[in-house]
């Protein structure tokens, strides 16, 4: 009984802690930005950031997915560039990885 209660409590704490941490970062970033300089080097930094964060998020995943991953990512990028269609680009990428794994007998 006590074990069940402490388990329940730890579930509430784990989800609650994660939620609070994430929300503070989301709102904190926006509110802090108002106190930061809006010109010069810092402005260039903030303008470049969206692209570099996305790339940093995805680069290790492509790298560790091997040749299939590299080819698929390149095809996805090309498709997104030419068609501006995110869904199509995603399907192309996933299709190449799935086909590659099917042919090479993954896992």
């Amino acid at each position: 009984m006590t074990l069940a209660i402490s388990t329940d409590l730890s579930i509430v704490l784990a989800i609650g802690g994660a939620a609070l941490a994430t929300y503070s970062l989301r709102l904190g970033g926006l509110l802090l930005a108002e106190r930061l300089p809006k010109n010069g080097g810092f402005k260039r930094f903030m303008e470049t950031l969206p692209g570099t964060i996305l790339l940093a998020l995805v680069a290790p995943g492509i790298f560790s997915a091997g040749i299939h991953g590299g080819v698929a990512a390149l095809a996805t990028a090309l498709c997104a560039w030419k068609t501006k269609n995110l869904l199509l680009a995603m399907i192309v990428g996933m299709g190449i990885v799935a086909a590659g794994r099917l042919l090479t007998g993954y896992p």
Partner: peptide, 22 residues
């Protein structure tokens, strides 16, 4: 993994990254 569902995340963020190119 057989359906590359684990690659969905990488694929969509690759496509999103392209849209950030200036």
């Amino acid at each position: 993994e057989r359906f590359a569902l684990d690659f969905a995340f990488v694929a969509v963020f690759t496509a999103l990254t392209v849209s950030m190119w200036r």
